[in-house]
Design a protein around this nucleic acid. Structure first.
Lengths: 342, 342
DNA sequence: CTGTTAGCGCCTTCAG
DNA sequence: CTGAAGGCGCTAACAG
């Protein structure tokens, strides 16, 4: 079965006995065409199974109806849900979505972006960009060339639209929740190489110091925070840590780590929340399905995605740069409770 | 901040004082260029921040380095993991991935595909295509124009490469597992409008009849099987059903439904697996994290994805149509056990 | 080794 | 209302 050669506008024109210009007009319905010829052209299109070549069209019109999206990976449902939100919004404007996974690797992130740019995307959404590990000038250069939206980024870059949760505030609130339950010594579980972890850690450090506790003893890094192994990696690491810590609560940078911590506690016979309180971050679906149900900060991923898409479309059409901050909201479930008596 | 006009090959050529052909040669490194001029051109490229326009290149070469992927949606991690597998493989061949969500809607599925074709993708992977609800001729037409790979499809279409698990066999094995534990009356939980559910139901019907049980009483359809509400929808429906059924086991078409069933049982005070055995299908990460851990059939999504990608690349390059079937493997965990005594 | 040139498929003035 | 022609950015002969 050999591929059929695709019909072009010229084929259609010939068959209908008109010029290519006329065919173009009926395809795009942007100029008046006599009903009779319109019909003849339409018949030819159907007969030849003609589909316009978008690449050619866009080369010509200097526009592009694809937008590029870069995520660290799909393993964490967080990203899948954000993409859902993006897809839902751009579909209405007939954009298509070009997806790239950066694997939490700054080098890979830059490579993805360059590839997307050369594909001539009309705009770019980067989720959890690694701005801390990529030299400023890279994104500064980029934004002069292509409309850009960050989701949950750390650094401010001029001309880049932004939507994100105030993760610093969210972290404060999470900490407050724990403290209001009587917890003083709180373990902080993070992954490597992501702005998002760093911003949370910074907030955490300030809060701990404010309470006269040295945060250095309570920070643990479990490696890649969004891989298929994140849950199990966290379990492994925490199995060691939990046996020797005097912390009564754990705040994790995402729900995957939260679940890993739950597992570690379970394996060690530590009761949650009686002996230990555990909090996640994000509120992915998983958080509701584990036992005990995980207390977490909701980041409302779908809204994050749809907002980002809207911002990007605005930026493409009007050039406006906007920054939107959404609120994390605390979702108190079963994994947090009163601190055990000393 | 106005967008900078993108530099073209002509700009580079002028600045370097050479012809466009030479620039093209250094960019593609496919013809000898004197080191000295190469360097001059490279400098011009850097200075102008030149990025080749892939659209133009591909229009010219009649090739395309993007492949289209259509999935029902991203909510079920099943699809995210398949995409992971695809991405991993195509990256090595410098393809990019154009993603579309069909929302479990046959109309939408066709629309996605048409959009992708007009984008001139060099091939298409459709995951869980709705072949049962789309007229044969649609895919027959399509494959004459664009290399096509199905993942987990129902109908055989000539010229379409295929990779999937033998879901019929998997269903049989699941049923056998349940029966070997003494279960006779087994509830079958499915979603709407997907070939995959149908193939499982058909297998289930045959097996039940073979045991002298009328399957009609034991089939329940919970609606959309891959949405954000699937788990909860299943719980709602099963809460009613479980109160009045005499079944001792439940086989679900995917893990989301499996978890929903677990929840329903929990809410009703039905002990799993003592009073009721529950099986899922797919083995998404979630299955391991719920309590009790869900017994399920592993579909090895990553392999599904990477195989599909490889098949597509083969098809693009050699035109060969291949069909590969992987095996589901039973993953027995905590949610299944001996049938309760009569 | 390098330059010239003819398209790839389409849209869009500009003339009829 | 319709046709002719130029050009979007790039590659691939074909000459030199």
């Amino acid at each position: 079965m050999e591929q059929k050669r695709k019909a072009t506008i010229v084929d259609v024109a010939k068959r209908a006995g008109v010029s290519v210009a006329t065919v173009s007009r009926v395809v795009n319905a942007n100029y008046p065409v006599k009903e009779e010829t319109r019909k003849r052209v339409q018949d030819a299109i159907d007969a030849l199974d003609y589909v316009p070549n978008v690449q050619a069209r866009e080369l010509n019109t200097q526009r592009s109806s694809t937008i590029g999206v870069v995520v660290p990976g799909l393993y964490n449902m967080f990203f899948a849900q954000v993409i859902d939100g993006i897809e839902d919004t751009i579909r209405q404007d007939d954009y298509s979505l070009l997806l790239n996974c950066a694997q939490n690797d700054p080098q890979q992130e830059m490579r993805c972006i360059t590839a997307l740019v050369s594909r001539n995307v009309s705009g770019l959404i980067v989720i959890s960009p690694n701005t801390a590990h990529i030299k400023e000038s890279f994104y500064q250069q980029l934004v002069r060339r292509t409309p850009l939206v960050f989701i949950n980024a750390y650094h401010y870059v001029e001309g880049v639209s932004y939507v994100g949760n105030d993760e610093a505030l969210g972290t404060q609130e999470a900490l407050r929740h724990l403290q209001s339950l009587g917890h003083e010594r709180i373990l902080f579980v993070r992954g490597e190489k992501s702005d998002s972890y760093q911003i949370k850690e910074d907030t955490y450090r300030v809060a701990m110091r404010g309470r006269g506790i040295d945060p250095a003893h309570y920070i643990v890094n479990i490696g890649n925070g969004n891989s298929a192994e994140t849950v199990d990696d966290t379990t492994d690491v925490l199995m060691r840590i939990l046996q020797q810590t005097d912390a009564t609560a754990v705040l994790c940078c995402n729900d995957l780590m939260g679940v890993g911590t739950l597992n570690a506690a379970h394996a060690l016979g530590i009761r949650v929340p009686d002996d230990l309180s555990v909090m996640g971050f994000d509120n992915i679906a998983l958080a509701r399905y584990v036992t005990p149900k995980l207390t977490t900060m909701d980041q409302n991923m779908f809204r994050l995605g749809s907002n980002a898409a809207q911002l990007l479309i605005d930026k493409i059409e009007t050039g406006e740069t906007k920054r939107v901050t959404l609120d994390n909201v605390l979702v108190a479930r079963e994994s947090t409770g009163m601190a055990p008596k000393k």
